[in-house]
Design a protein around this nucleic acid. Structure first.
Length: 216
DNA sequence: GTCGTGATGCGCT
DNA sequence: GCGCATCACGACC
């Protein structure tokens, strides 16, 4: 169930908080993307929080913004509710919802979700997908299913061609599990940043892989 | 089922 | 030049 009465201003106000507090509001939220090919909508089931640069009140060595503002990560410094999409490993896109007040570089990486509309289009964008549950069970899979690229980075997820509906109430604490972020090493121990949140027991959550250690 | 590894290109030091 | 907020596939249990 989603709140149809909450307008963009109300949603943006929720997203303007600390991403670790925003997470239960985004779990269960539905992000839609309209394109000439059609519409795909995804119900978010797993996110990861990333905080600000080194000189901020809440530094995060694992964040793309840790080294300061660059042309690529600029959207993270902007107002909440916008998208930050980046390209990695030479072939994959990953997407974040920017959080925090304007000027604070924090956000939530969309790690996994369930396709709830536009199933056929999502499948055509992800031919390797073998089941409904793995269509968006990973950050690059989710971005691919939605048809997101770096061209969408900086765009407002609360305005056309996007739409974001938050659940009418944040996910109950008992329904949310958390643990170390995935693929982020060199944080002085991955347990130091248990900022990955997912809906406990949801079949679309990405398979856990511990960050491989950088040294030793 | 799990594990290891190659693909592939951009952003940043 | 190096290192990735990853995925898919093949070997093996």
């Amino acid at each position: 169930m989603t709140s149809h009465d909450a307008g963009p201003d109300a949603i943006r106000a929720v997203l303007s908080g600390d991403p670790r507090d925003v997470a239960p509001h985004l779990l269960g939220a539905v992000l839609s993307h309209h394109s000439p090919e059609g519409t795909v909508a995804i119900r978010v089931t797993e996110v990861e929080a990333y905080l600000g640069p080194r000189d901020s009140a809440q530094p995060d060595p694992g964040s793309h913004t840790y080294g300061g503002r660059t042309a690529r990560n600029a959207p993270m410094f902007g107002p909440a509710g916008h998208l930050y999409v980046y390209f990695t490993y030479g072939m994959h896109y990953c997407s974040n919802i920017v959080c925090g007040p304007d000027g604070v570089a924090s956000g939530l990486l969309l790690r996994a979700g369930e396709v709830v509309a536009g199933y056929a289009l999502a499948q055509s964008r992800r031919p390797a997908s073998r089941s409904r549950t793995d269509l968006a069970s990973g950050p690059a899979r989710l971005a691919s299913a939605l048809g997101l690229t770096t061209a969408d980075s900086g765009r407002d997820a609360l305005a056309e061609p996007f739409r974001l509906e938050l659940p009418s109430a944040p996910a109950a604490e008992s329904a949310v599990a958390n643990g170390p972020r995935v693929g982020v090493a060199g944080e002085g121990g991955s347990d130091s940043y248990p900022w990955r949140y997912w809906l406990a027991g949801d079949p679309t959550v990405s398979r856990y892989k511990a960050a491989r250690s950088r040294a030793v």
